[in-house]
Simulated assay, not measured.
Amino acid sequence: MTSSAAITLHLAAGNTIVALPSGERHRWATTALELAGFTRHQGEAHRLPLGDHVHARATLTHLHETARDCQAKVITSERPYLGDIAVVVAEALPGSWEVEVEHYPDGSIPAHLLEWVWEATPALSALSKSRIPCAAILRDGDGTELLLTERPWNDTYLVGALLPSPDHVEVVGTGAPRTVVATTAHRAAADVRSRLLPEFEQLVLLARLREVQQDLRWVRNAEAGSVDTVDLDAALERFLIHAPYLIEAARRHDGKPLAGPEDAALVRFEILFARFQADAGGQNGGEPDGIDEATALWVESAEDLVDAVRSAILGPAGKPSHSAIATATPPKPPAAVTAPGRTL
């Protein structure tokens, strides 16, 4: 009779063995591990340190006994532990990344996580019916999140992007980055650096640009005095959030000089944002100084900023230019701005 509980052992970093319980009766596999002496910190996998060879050998022998009693099968895997792969990838990426490993004893990536996968072709999302024991989420702390897992049938690693929070930007309709497929952690990291992150950054910038253009068109086409204050505040706040990222992209314009009006607009916005940051740091709530100036500058000069960014991130034929998008962290956007009582 085939066991419906299994324990897969991986040799892991730090001179340890990582044990992953799985199967319909995975709780019995977990019981076998705990009875054998494997330790587990909250949210982490069961581990066995190998520093004390005598203790480790005795624990493994005991595991086979407890697994037999719990009707769980013990499997020794030749594959590295996915958590270690995630750390290798994260350490090779620009900036500082955090790694969170999720374990799925029932063998399925949660549907709610797959719904956040953002990819051009179904690679990660195609794993919904495959047995996946674990996955890792990599976060850079600035809104970029990557999902890493392993295809069970050919031992390749998949690294894809997760949708940015809609609180940051709405990316629907801008396309999607291509998921990385690689046979090693180092190859995966190289492809994430050279392709996935630049595509992600570029598509997010295009989405920011689209929101700015839509809001600007709406404000300019509205009749004087007819714009609702709440809607106006929301549109201005979106612009003030997006603009630092757009300015950063325009400044990375392959060293080519910007047109006079475009460069002048960038300088004015940079001065304004610097003042906002200073005001936000010195006030106890309330409205930062210069909000009326920000509104006027937004309406009058945002189009020059849009033109500068479009020339930076789009090629001559209107196609994205990946080389124009770096993976450096852009400056922090200004503090959220709300100013009641403003109308156009």
Rank of each mutant, 00 (worst) to 15 (best):
A58W: 10
Q213G: 14
R40Q: 00
A308H: 04
W28E: 15
P152C: 01
D304W: 09
V74F: 06
L114Y: 01
A123H: 14
P105M: 02
H64S: 09
A280N: 12
R275H: 14
A280T: 14
F276L: 06
H112Q: 14
T39K: 13
E150H: 03
H46Y: 11
S321T: 15
D307L: 11
T31S: 11
P320T: 07
W153M: 11
V180N: 00
I313R: 03
L236C: 05
A5H: 00
A274Q: 14
A250K: 08
D155N: 14
F273H: 15
R268E: 13
E293D: 09
E300P: 01
I325V: 15
R25Y: 11
L82Y: 01
A126P: 09
S165L: 08
P122C: 09
T66M: 06
A185I: 00
N15D: 11
F276P: 06
I313A: 03
R220F: 02
D307P: 05
R217N: 13
H26V: 06
V87S: 05
R310L: 06
S3W: 10
A188K: 10
W118M: 05
L297F: 07
L63K: 01
D84S: 03
H41T: 14
A294S: 08
A278Q: 14
P21Q: 02
G143A: 03
P320W: 00
C134H: 03
G175V: 00
N154W: 00
T66I: 04
G143N: 04
A182S: 04
A126M: 02
E119Y: 08
R310N: 09
D167Q: 12
H64P: 08
V337D: 04
V88G: 05
A86E: 07
V169I: 04
A189P: 09
N221V: 10
E102M: 07
A294P: 11
G290T: 07
P122F: 05
T229C: 08
V180C: 01
G23K: 05
H55N: 13
D142Q: 15
P340I: 14
S321M: 09
G286S: 03
S128K: 10
E199V: 07
E223C: 09
V99L: 01
I137P: 00
T184N: 09
L82D: 02
Q283R: 15
K319F: 07
L114F: 02
L35N: 01
R220W: 02
R178Q: 14
D228T: 06
R25L: 13
T183D: 11
T31L: 08
T329S: 14
E65R: 14
E102T: 15
E100P: 13
D231K: 05
K129E: 12
E303P: 08
E303H: 12
E91F: 01
H41C: 09
P21M: 00
K73Q: 15
H112K: 10
A56R: 04
Y157F: 10
V192K: 04
P334I: 11
R40P: 03
Y245F: 14
G290Q: 03
E119P: 12
E248F: 11
V172A: 15
T343W: 10
R151V: 02
Q71G: 13
D289H: 10
T343N: 13
L48W: 02
L258G: 07
E145D: 02
I247K: 03
V74H: 08
V88L: 08
L232E: 07
S301H: 11
A136S: 02
L11Q: 15
